[in-house]
Design a binder for these strands. Structure first.
Lengths: 346, 346
DNA sequence: TTGTAAGCGTTATCAG
DNA sequence: CTGATAACGCTTACAA
C-alpha cells in the first residue's frame, strides 16, 4: 500500500535510481543532465506513486520561496479586488503564488501582516491602499519593510511614495485638478466636497487637486461645504446628509458635489435622493476610480478612471524587479470621464 | 555584523543556550517547560538579532503548514471578492494564511491550482464558484480533490454538492421559486430570462426555480424569451438586446426580465435604456446576489440576498473541520428583496 | 551522467 | 528543565 505521504526517496527507490537523479529528472532545471531512459523511469515511478513535490521542502532547500504577499485594506472593496486581479495574473505569470491579507483598514494588522510575510519568506510584498498621515504608524511600517528588504525581499506600494519603497503613484491631484476645470467649464461654481477621513492621504490629494484647480479659476470652496467622513459608501451617504443639513432652508447649498471615490459618490446620490433632491438636476455629483460595477448606474457617474488591474500588474513587476538604490516611482494618471451626473449648467 | 539571515541557532548562541531551548522559549507551545530567566535571555537575543522564524522550516519540521487555498473564478467579481473577505477573516481567526488563485473561469487552471495547493501542502482548499455540467472536467477535479483529501487536506466548495466534498450550497431554486410568486403577486405575467451560459449549474438552477415557480402558478415562460449568454455584465447587456430584438415591432415582448445575477441585471438595465425603454415602467428587472456595491442603483434592484461573506466563513469552517465519512452539505438560503425595479403592475 | 552526502531552519524525541 | 541529535523532504556541490 502507498505510504501516507510519498516522498522523492520513494520515487527514487521505485525507479531504482538515487535521490539526486530523481530530483534532477523531476525538476529538470536548466541543465537536464539525466539520461532519457532514466528520466522516463523516474517520471513513471512518480506518476505511479502519485508523487507530489513538497513546495515547502523545495523552498527550504533552494533557499527561496515562491510566495508573493498582497496586503489590501479590504478585499471586498472593488477598488482593491480589481488591483488584486492584476496582481494574481502577474504573479501567475511569474510562477508565484499570492498570499492575501485583508487588514480591514487596521494599521496594526498591516504591520503584523508584513511581519507575517517576512516569516513566510515571501519573495515580495505588495502594499495596496493608501497611507494615512499617522507618522508613527508609517515609520513603524517603513522600518518593517526596510528590514524585509534588507533580507532580500522586494516591496512595492500603490499610493503615496512615503514608505521609501518602489511605488505606483496615482496622480490624484492632477486628475482632480483637471476635473475642476472640466466642471468649471460646464458651468459649476458652488462646490461641495465629501472629503474622506482627515489624514487619509489619497483623499486629501484628491480634495486638494480639486480645490487648487478651482482656486486657479477663481472659485473658492466654502469650508462649510467640505465634509469629512469615512472613505466608504456610508461615509458618502452621511456626508451628503450633513452637507444638505447645513443649508438653512433645506435647499441644496451647492450645485456640484465631489466625492473622493465612487462608492462615496453613490452613497451621496442615495442621500440626495432620500432628501428629495434630483441628481443631477438639483445637484451634480462626481466621483473617482471608475469602478467597473458602477459603470451602468443612472445617472452615469462623472469620475476619474484608474487602470486598477494594470496598477496591480505594475506593482507586481516593480516588487519583483531587481532592487535599485533609489526607490522607483511609477506615476499612473487618471482619466477624467464626464458623464450624465454632471451635465452642462445652463 | 549581522548575518545575512538570522537563524534560531544564532539566537541560541547569542543567548548562550541550546538550539532546543531557544526553540522552546520562542515557540512557547502548550507546555512552556523553560525557566523564566532563560526564556527572557532567549527572547532578548532574538530581539537583538531581529530574529524572524522561518515559517517554511517550521512547517517542514512540524509536518503541517499554515496555508489555506482559496480558488475563485474571478477575484475582481464582487461576488467572489465578498466571499473572499469572509474566507480571509475566518482564516485569520484560525491562524492561517490565505493563498489566492483566480482561475479566470478556466477549468484547467482550476485543476492546476488544486494541484498547486497540494504541492504547497495547504491545510485546506476552498473552491468558490459554481460547477458546469462538464462531466469530464468535474470528474478530473473530483479525483484531484479526492487525492488531496486522502493526504489529509480539507476541502469545501461553494455551490453545488457535486464534487463529493463538503459544500455550502445555495438554495438557488427555492429562492427564485419564491421570487416567481412574489413577481406573480405583483401582477407580472410575461417573463423574460437572461439565463446565463448553457451548462452553468448555478445559472440553470436559478432559471429553473423561476420557471417552475411560475409554472406552478399557471404561467409559462416563452422559449423565445429565454436568452443564453455569459454570466457577466456584458452578457446581461447583450442578452437584453437580443431579447428586445426578438420582438417584431420594437416594443418590449415581456413585462419582467429576470437576470440570473445582479451584474447581468445591471447590464440588462443599461440595454433597456439604450433601447429607449424605461425601467421599470416599460420593463421590470430582477437580479440575484444583492451585491453591496449595487445596493444604491436607481431604480433599486429587486434581487435575492445572499450572505456572501458568511458563506466564505462557513466554507472555511467546513474545510477546516475534522473530516467525516459523508460529505456535509450546508444549505444557505437567499432572501427575496423586492425593490423598485419591479413595482406592482396595475 | 550518476551517486553520496551535506545542508536548509525548525521541531521533537530522548536522554541527562 | 535542558541539551544533543535525529528527523522533515528536497536541492546541490562534490566525487566517482
Amino acid at each position: 500500500m502507498t505510504p501516507m505521504t510519498v516522498t522523492l526517496s520513494d520515487v527514487a527507490r521505485e525507479a531504482g535510481v538515487s535521490l539526486a537523479t530523481a530530483s534532477r529528472a523531476i525538476n529538470g532545471s536548466a541543465n537536464r543532465t539525466v539520461r532519457p531512459d532514466l528520466r522516463e523511469k523516474v517520471l513513471d515511478a512518480a506518476r505511479r506513486l502519485r508523487y507530489s513535490p513538497d513546495a515547502n521542502a523545495q523552498a527550504m532547500a533552494r533557499g527561496r520561496t515562491t510566495a508573493l504577499g498582497l496586503i489590501v485594506h479590504d478585499i471586498a472593496d472593488p477598488y482593491f479586488s480589481t488591483i488584486a486581479s492584476g496582481v494574481t495574473s502577474a504573479a501567475e505569470r511569474a510562477g508565484l503564488v499570492v498570499t492575501l491579507a485583508s487588514t480591514e483598514r487596521d494599521g496594526d494588522r498591516e504591520l503584523a501582516f508584513v511581519e507575517l510575510m517576512q516569516r513566510q519568506r515571501a519573495r515580495a510584498i505588495i502594499l495596496a491602499g493608501g497611507r494615512t498621515a499617522d507618522e508613527e504608524a508609517n515609520a513603524r511600517l517603513s522600518s518593517a519593510l526596510e528590514e524585509y528588504r534588507s533580507r532580500g525581499g522586494g516591496v512595492a506600494a500603490v499610493g503615496q511614495p512615503l514608505l521609501g519603497v518602489d511605488t505606483v503613484t496615482i496622480e490624484n491631484q492632477r486628475a482632480t485638478g483637471e476635473l475642476a476645470s472640466r466642471l468649471h467649464a460646464l458651468g459649476y461654481r458652488r462646490f461641495g466636497v465629501l472629503a474622506g477621513p482627515e489624514g487619509h492621504l489619497t483623499a486629501e490629494a484628491r480634495f486638494e487637486g480639486l480645490r487648487d484647480g478651482l482656486a486657479g479659476l477663481g472659485v473658492e470652496i466654502d469650508d462649510a461645504h467640505v465634509v469629512r467622513g469615512p472613505f466608504t459608501r456610508d461615509g458618502g451617504f452621511e456626508g451628503m446628509r450633513t452637507l444638505l443639513g447645513r443649508s438653512a432652508d433645506g435647499t441644496c447649498p451647492v450645485d456640484a458635489v465631489f466625492a473622493v471615490n465612487d462608492v462615496m459618490a453613490v452613497g451621496a446620490m442615495a442621500a440626495a435622493r432620500a432628501a428629495g433632491l434630483s441628481v443631477p438636476d438639483d445637484v451634480a455629483i462626481a466621483g473617482f476610480d471608475d469602478i467597473l460595477t458602477l459603470r451602468d448606474i443612472v445617472p452615469s457617474l462623472t469620475t476619474i478612471r484608474l487602470p486598477l488591474a494594470d496598477i496591480g500588474v505594475m506593482a507586481t513587476e516593480l516588487a519583483l524587479a531587481p532592487p535599485r538604490d533609489e526607490p522607483r516611482v511609477v506615476p499612473v494618471d487618471g482619466q477624467v470621464i464626464v458623464r450624465d451626473s454632471t451635465p452642462r449648467r445652463s
